[in-house]
């Protein structure tokens, strides 16, 4: 009813992209190109819509229009429903965009210096000394299970399941969460 008066009022709807709807290529420039619904898009961006709830589900595919606006092509409901090859591309892209090393072991935590927390930990990106400022906000449990850490530089780290860490690490952590 509203639709035929003016395009301004077109209601944005959720477009779920299935495997056959979208083709993805990694371009030489290092970015991702996509083909969907008969159009080619350069330098598309993939975004996890629910990064903390599920890393594999609901991936929004967007592109930049000529006047620098991000538009959504659609949403991939589940990475696992894509073809092997696309899965690989998508995962690789996401692991790059969401570069979040996982903390595997905590050696030491100290706090109380001007609201800073200092963490010495083993991560999937090697041993790190992590300084968290304002740690009240940047060192938080999400859904009582996952620990998300943002350090003073803006790097992110996580522990997907705190209980899965070794006992000594959990014990050290527990005082801070």
């Amino acid at each position: 009813m509203i639709k035929n008066t003016e395009s301004v009022f077109e209601v944005d709807t959720l477009k779920i992209l299935t495997d056959k709807d979208i083709a993805l290529h990694k371009a030489e420039s290092g970015f991702l190109n996509a083909e969907a619904f008969g159009e080619t898009y350069e330098r598309v961006s993939l975004t996890r819509l629910v990064p903390f709830m599920n890393e594999e589900k609901y991936i929004s595919v967007t592109y930049k229009t000529e006047d620098n606006e991000w538009k959504e092509i659609g949403v991939i409901e589940d990475i696992r429903k894509l073809s092997e090859e696309k899965q690989k591309i998508v995962r690789e892209y996401l692991s790059f965009k969401y570069y979040i090393p996982v903390i595997t072991k905590i050696n030491k935590i100290t706090d109380n210096r001007m609201g800073y927390l200092f963490l010495e930990a083993e991560t999937t990106a090697g041993p790190k000394k992590i300084a968290v400022n304002d740690w009240w906000h940047n060192f938080r449990m999400i859904q009582n299970k996952m620990l998300s850490v943002t350090d003073a530089d803006g790097n992110r780290y996580c522990v997907p399941e705190v209980e899965q860490l070794d006992k000594a690490s959990v014990k050290k952590l527990q005082l801070f969460i």
Binding site: S29, F31, E42, Y98, Y99
Partner: peptide, 17 residues
């Protein structure tokens, strides 16, 4: 980006690298 950043350049054709 979310946990890292990148340096990009744009060439004369407007292609980003």
């Amino acid at each position: 980006l979310i946990g890292c950043s990148m340096l990009c350049v744009k060439d004369a054709l407007g292609k980003q690298k």
